[in-house]
Write a protein that binds this DNA or RNA. Structure first.
Length: 601
DNA sequence: CGGCGCGGCGCC
DNA sequence: AAAGGGCGCCGCGCCG
C-alpha cells in the first residue's frame, strides 16, 4: 500500500491511497499529521512525498518513524538522468513537472530539528501553501533553475504529488530495467529516511575527550585572536630555519617565495612536494600544516558550533553527489580526522557497533563484471592478499595500487605499470572499466548496476571536443581535447564502480534498519514511557553514522551482539540484492566498542 | 563588506 | 610516497 501526501489547502495535508481513489481519504491539519501517520504506519505503507528532508524531520520530532518511503525529488533526479529511461522521458505525460527543481540535490536549509524533546512541535508544521505568499513561491516559479534554499516542497498540492508519482511509476515500468530501478528508488528513499534520522539521533560526542586530544596536540585553547601555543612554536622554528622572519605560513604565495629563497625548489607548498626535499625547515613546516588543519577544521570552534548536548548532528545530503554517494552540508561529517574519532563515545550502558565493508569497491567491480577469478581472489578475508596468492603481483601493496589504478585510471607510476598485469589476470573486470572510460571519452553516459547514470559532460567540454574535430584545429586544440576527453573518461570509469558501491551501501543500510527496529521489539524495554514521550531512539538500536562504506550503530549494550549479527546479515543480503547468486563476498571489519577510536585496532 | 576561485588537505 | 576517482571546509587573496 502506498499513501501519497501533499498539501490540501491552507495549513492542511491530504492523504491519498492511489489504489482506491485520486481523492484524499483523509485531510488533516498539519499539526495532526504525526498522529495519523503513527496510526497508519501499522499498515506498513510506503509514504510518497515530495521530499523526505522536508517532511520527515517534523514527524521524527514527535517521535514518529516510518518504515518505507518514496522520495519524489531523489527519484526524479535518478529517473530523469538514467539511460534506462532515456527513450521515454521528456514530452507529454513524461515531462518533469515545474514544481520539481532540476539539477543536483542540494542542502535544505532549516531542517534542523532540536534534540528530541517532549516539547510541542506544532510550529514546525507551519508551511506556505503551494504558490502562496512568502519565499516559498519558488515552488510555483517556472523559471526556478535549481532547488532554491527557500523552496519548500511540502507545499506542493497532493494532486500534483500524485501525478508525479504516477509519472515516475510509468517511467520505471517501461524502462529497460524496472526491477533494478525499483530497488534503487527504494534504497535511495530509505537512505533519505536514514539521513534525517542520523541528524535527529546525532553521533554521541564526548567533548572532554575531544578537548584532551586538542590540548595534547595543540596545547591549551588559545585566547581569542591567538593561535595555539604549539603552532606558534613551530611557526617560529620554521621562520628561523628559512631565515624568513616575517613569512606568513598561512599564505601560500608568501610561503612559496620564502621556500624558494631558502633554496627549496618546489612548485607548490603541498606536503608531498615538500617531502621530496631535504631541508631542516620541512619537518616543522609539515607539522605546522597538520596542526593548522586540525585547529581550523576540527578544534574548539568546531566543537562549539557542532556539538550540542553531547551529539554531533551534521546535515546529510543523500544523493548529494553525481555517483550517488552522500554529501554533507556543514560540520564536515565525512572528513572527520582519525585523531578526533576517539571523542565518539557510547552513552553509559550503550555500545557502538562499528562496521566497514572491506575493500568494497574491488568486490563490487568483480560482481559488476561477473569476473569469477577476481571474485575468487576476494573470497575469505583480505582481497589484496588474494591477488598476491593468485600470483598476479608480488606484494599486498602492489595489489592495492594496481587495483586502485585500474578503478581510477592511473597511467603513470608504479600503479600504471602494474595495471597491465591485473588486466591479464582479470580481463572481464578490466574490460568493464575500460569500456566505461571509453564511453566517457566520447561523451556518452555510463550507468551503475541499478540504473543511476552519469551526468553528460558540460557545454564547455563539448565545444573543446568539437573545436578539435574542425579542419582548422591546431595540434594544441587536439591535445587539449584528448586531455579533457581522458579526464572525463577517468570520471566515468570510476563512476560505475563508485556508484554501484554506493548502491550496495544503501541496500546494506536499508536492509539493516528494520532489523534494528525488530531487535528492539523482540526484547521490549520494560519502561515504555520513553517511546510515548516522543523520543524516537530511546532504548532502540539505531544508526548514528555513515561514511560511504562504513556505519556505526549506537545500541543498548545488551543488544550489541544481536546488532552485530544483523549488520553482517544485512551486508550479505545487500550482496544478494545486487549480484544475486554470483559468488562475490562482502566481508566486514566489525567491532563492538565504547569508542570509535578502538574500532581500528 | 560579501562572494568566489584556488591551494591545500581531511575523509572514502 | 604519489598516482588515479569522489567530496567539503579552511584561509588567503582578489574582485566588485
Amino acid at each position: 500500500m502506498r499513501i501519497v501526501v501533499g498539501a490540501a489547502g491552507a495549513g492542511r495535508v491530504g492523504l491519498v491511497d492511489p489504489s482506491v481513489s485520486a481523492d484524499p481519504f483523509e485531510t488533516v491539519r498539519v499539526d495532526e499529521l504525526p498522529a495519523i501517520v503513527r496510526t497508519l504506519e501499522a499498515r506498513r505503507p510506503r509514504w510518497v512525498w515530495s521530499d523526505t528532508r522536508r517532511w520527515y524531520p517534523r514527524l521524527l520530532a514527535d517521535g514518529v518513524r516510518v518504515e518505507r518511503a518514496h522520495d519524489l525529488l531523489l527519484a526524479a533526479a535518478i529517473l530523469d538522468q538514467s539511460t534506462a529511461t532515456a527513450s521515454l522521458r521528456g514530452e507529454g505525460s513524461h515531462a518533469r513537472p515545474q514544481w520539481l527543481p532540476s539539477g543536483p540535490v542540494e542542502a535544505v536549509q532549516g531542517t534542523g530539528v532540536p534534540a528530541a524533546s517532549s516539547a510541542s512541535h506544532a510550529s514546525l508544521f507551519e508551511f506556505d501553501d503551494f504558490g502562496g505568499a512568502g519565499e516559498a513561491g519558488g515552488a510555483a516559479d517556472a523559471s526556478a533553475p535549481g532547488l532554491h534554499e527557500s523552496s519548500d516542497l511540502i507545499g506542493v498540492p497532493v494532486a500534483a504529488v500524485l501525478a508525479e508519482h504516477a509519472r515516475q511509476l510509468a517511467l520505471v515500468a517501461s524502462s529497460n530495467q524496472p526491477g533494478a530501478l525499483r530497488l534503487l528508488l527504494a534504497a535511495e528513499s530509505a537512505g533519505a529516511l536514514i539521513g534525517v534520522e542520523l541528524h535527529a539521533a546525532g553521533l554521541p560526542w564526548h567533548r572532554g575527550v575531544h578537548e584532551r586530544v586538542l590540548e595534547g596536540e595543540l596545547g591549551p585553547k588559545p585566547a581569542p585572536g591567538r593561535k595555539p601555543a604549539r603552532m606558534e612554536e613551530l611557526a617560529a622554528e620554521v621562520r628561523s630555519l628559512l631565515a624568513a622572519p616575517a613569512v606568513n605560513l598561512d599564505s601560500q604565495v608568501d610561503l612559496l617565495k620564502a621556500l624558494r629563497r631558502a633554496g627549496i625548489d618546489v612548485e607548490s607548498t603541498s606536503k608531498w612536494q615538500l617531502r621530496e626535499h631535504e631541508h631542516p625547515a620541512i619537518e616543522p613546516l609539515v607539522a605546522y600544516k597538520k596542526l593548522s588543519r586540525l585547529y581550523s577544521a576540527n578544534a574548539w570552534s568546531w566543537l562549539d558550533e557542532w556539538v550540542v548536548d553531547g551529539r554531533f548532528r551534521p546535515d546529510y545530503v543523500p544523493g548529494g553527489t553525481a555517483t550517488g554517494r552522500w554529501a554533507t552540508s556543514g560540520g564536515g561529517a565525512l572528513q572527520l580526522p582519525k585523531n578526533v574519532r576517539s571523542a565518539v563515545v557510547a552513552d553509559p550502558g550503550w555500545a557502538l557497533v562499528v562496521a566497514d565493508a572491506a575493500q568494497l569497491e574491488p568486490r563490487v567491480l568483480a560482481g559488476l563484471a561477473h569476473d569469477e577469478s577476481m571474485a575468487e581472489a576476494g573470497r575469505g578475508r583480505d582481497f589484496y592478499s588474494g591477488i598476491v596468492g593468485a600470483g598476479v603481483v608480488e606484494t599486498r601493496d602492489q595489489a592495492k595500487v594496481a587495483i586502485l589504478g585500474a578503478m581510477y585510471g592511473a597511467t603513470t607510476g608504479e600503479s600504471g605499470r602494474l595495471v597491465p598485469r591485473l588486466a591479464r589476470a582479470y580481463p572481464k573486470a578490466m574490460a568493464l572499466v575500460d569500456r566505461a572510460a571509453a564511453d566517457g571519452e566520447r561523451g556518452a553516459s555510463v550507468t551503475t548496476l541499478l540504473g543511476r547514470s552519469s551526468p553528460p559532460p558540460g557545454e564547455e567540454w563539448r565545444s573543446v571536443q568539437s573545436r578539435a574535430s574542425q579542419p582548422e584545429a591546431t595540434p594544441a586544440d587536439e591535445r587539449r581535447a584528448r586531455s579533457r576527453a581522458r579526464d572525463w573518461g577517468r570520471f566515468t570509469r570510476n563512476f560505475v564502480v563508485q556508484g554501484t558501491a554506493a548502491e550496495w551501501a544503501l541496500c546494506w543500510m536499508a536492509v539493516l534498519r528494520p532489523k534494528l527496529v525488530a531487535i528492539a521489539a523482540a526484547a521490549p524495554d520494560p519502561d515504555q514511557r520513553a517511546h510515548r514521550s516522543g523520543a524516537a531512539f530511546d532504548r532502540v538500536p539505531h544508526l548514528v553514522y555513515y561514511l560511504h562504506d562504513e556505519i556505526i550503530v549506537h545500541t543498548p549494550r545488551e543488544r550489541a551482539d544481536d546488532v552485530a549479527v544483523a549488520v553482517a546479515a544485512a551486508a550479505a543480503e545487500a550482496g544478494r540484492l545486487l549480484f544475486g547468486e554470483f559468488p562475490v563476498e562482502f566481508p566486514l571489519d566489525l567491532a563492538i566498542v565504547d569508542s570509535y577510536a578502538l574500532a581500528d585496532a
